[in-house]
């Protein structure tokens, strides 16, 4: 892809980023940070490409280190964000196990929560 197209995409992404993130309720700022953290773990894609094209053992070793680090970032980030957001649904499960939501209280909670979350 040529430089100008990449630059165009970058600039547009800046605006999308500011637009989307500035609407996040301050109540969810910690999950936002860890979620954004998980997203930059996508550097894994770059690490895989570099590792897959490595011919020298040293290059491969460094690239594999990058793969390990990026995977830790990506997987850990999404897992821990999920755990946090699960708690915001008001259930008692603490270990991130996907238990079925409590149908009796979920709808009322959800509407009340939306009221609280969007007021900023």
């Amino acid at each position: 892809m040529d430089g100008i197209s990449l630059l165009t995409i970058t600039v547009l992404a800046v605006f999308v980023g500011f637009e989307v993130v500035s609407k996040v309720s301050s109540t969810l700022h910690t999950p936002l940070m860890s979620g954004a953290n998980a997203i930059h773990g996508i550097i894994l894609v770059g690490a895989i490409i570099v590792a897959g094209q490595a011919t020298h053992p040293w290059v491969l070793a460094v690239a594999l280190l990058a793969v390990v680090l990026a995977t830790a970032n990506l997987v850990g980030g999404f897992v821990v964000t999920d755990r946090m957001l699960e708690m915001f649904r008001g259930r008692t499960g603490k270990e991130g196990k996907p238990a079925p939501p409590g149908q009796d209280r979920a709808p009322t909670d959800a509407s009340a929560r939306e009221g609280g979350g969007s007021s900023r």
Binding site: M1, L6, I9, T10, A13, V14, V16, G17, F18, V20, V21, S22, V24, H29, L32, M33, A36, N37, I39, H40, I42, I43, V45, G46, I49
Partner: peptide, 20 residues
Amino acid sequence: LGNVLLVVAGTLVGASGTIL
């Protein structure tokens, strides 16, 4: 790397980190 996904994802995170 000429990889659009990395550009977009990284920029999103940059924006969110800046706002926070």
